[in-house]
């Protein structure tokens, strides 16, 4: 249960094509994250799978069945919305039981499942409250509870953590990952946050302007980005890009080097520059170094760097972690070439 295939799916709103023909296979039990900048079509793609939007052309298969024309209620999918979309006039218990009630399930079984879900999600004490009386994190859990009681073929998450504060977000991230481990159900998760994508996904789908830029495991994307867009989007702080003469020396239109793959020295190295702002995080230090003739470089140093604003430093890229790109942005694969 839970295999989803998109075949030549397109979506247009009026004349505006949001998603050009797109193929994608999501395997049973996989945790797939759609990631990309806002407006890249990731939410639209999720809504197409949910059935909340009609595809303009192409087919969507769920477990081998053509589901393109099937209304959302009959697709056997559960969705967690960005706003949680809880029913404000129903208690937590009724919210969670709602899909079961719609399925006309036996009330005793409804109760059993709601109780079980509440237990898993630490909501037992809140079952009789209204959503308005809950904190953001609790609401999020209710939304998840409402999704899991149905035992759906797959879960769809539409930026579920974006309304939570930073600390809670980390917690919920872990909880959702935990849930995936225990349920082993397919999950499709939409986010614009590459950290969420990297930490949770089995498979990441990077989208830009409705097009799939690359599909792969988090580490594949990190190590071998298919193009400059993916390279820049995955990883934090962002990869440094250098064009022009320096790049030409490496036989590329553009070269990219991640901040953590720069070696800092006060005596010698490839590029000579001046330290601008230094951000001390304790475990790491981020240095913003200005090098004549290049964009400022971000350099990540473990621990304390011992350099200060205005110091002259030398930076050298780690050769095996250097990425090279053609003028059209595609990566040059030196190892396979």
């Amino acid at each position: 249960m839970g295999k989803i295939s998109l075949k030549q799916v397109t979506k247009a709103f009026g004349d505006a094509e949001v998603i050009p023909p797109l193929d994608l296979d999501i395997n049973e039990g996989e945790f797939v994250v759609f990631v990309g900048p806002s407006g890249c079509g990731k939410s639209t793609l999720l809504r197409l799978i949910a059935g909340l939007e009609d595809v303009s052309s192409g087919t969507i298969e769920i477990d081998g069945q053509n589901a393109t024309e099937v209304p959302p209620a009959k697709r056997g999918l559960a969705m967690v919305f960005q706003s949680y979309a809880l029913y404000p006039h129903m208690s937590v218990r009724k919210n969670i039981a709602f899909p079961l009630k719609m399925a006309k399930m036996d009330p005793a079984e409804q109760e059993r499942r709601v109780t079980a879900a509440a237990k898993v999600l630490n909501l037992t004490d809140y079952l009789d409250r209204r959503p308005g009386q809950l904190s953001g994190g609790q609401r999020q859990r209710v939304a998840i509870g409402r999704a899991i009681v149905r035992e759906p073929a797959a879960f769809l998450f539409d930026e579920p953590l974006s309304n939570l504060d930073a600390a809670l977000r980390v917690n919920m991230r872990l909880e959702i990952s935990e849930l995936h481990q225990s349920l082993a159900t397919t999950m499709i998760y939409v986010t614009h946050d590459q950290v969420e994508a990297m930490t949770m996904a089995d498979k990441i789908v990077v989208l830009r302007a409705g097009r799939i830029e690359q599909v792969g495991t988090p580490l594949e994307l990190y190590r071998t980005p298919a193009n400059q867009f993916v390279a820049g989007f995955i990883g934090s702080p962002k990869m440094n890009f250098i064009t022009g003469e320096e790049a030409a020396r490496f036989g590329a239109h553009t070269i990219g080097i991640r901040p953590e793959h720069c070696v800092l020295s006060t005596t010698d190295g490839t590029w000579k520059g001046k330290v601008g702002v230094a951000e001390h995080l304790g475990s790491d230090t981020f240095l913003y170094v200005t090098v004549p003739g290049m964009d400022p470089l971000t350099v990540r140093v473990q621990g304390e760097a011992g350099v200060h604003h205005g110091d002259t430093v030398f930076i050298s890229p780690v050769a095996e972690n250097l990425h090279r790109f053609e003028a059209n942005g595609l990566a040059i694969r030196q190892a396979t070439a």
Binding site: A50, L52, P71, P72, A73, K74, L77, A78, M79, F81, Q82, S83, A85, L86, Y87, P88, H89, M90, F98, P99, K101, M102, A103, R146, R150, L156
Partner: peptide, 27 residues
């Protein structure tokens, strides 16, 4: 009334009338 709530009802298996009776009307 946020449209997402009605979509949630649809995802939860509510038909048009159930959506109107159980979700839209009370809200």
């Amino acid at each position: 009334i946020p449209g997402e709530i009605l979509e949630a009802a649809r995802m939860d298996g509510a038909g048009l009338w159930e959506e109107v009776i159980h979700v839209l009307t009370p809200m």
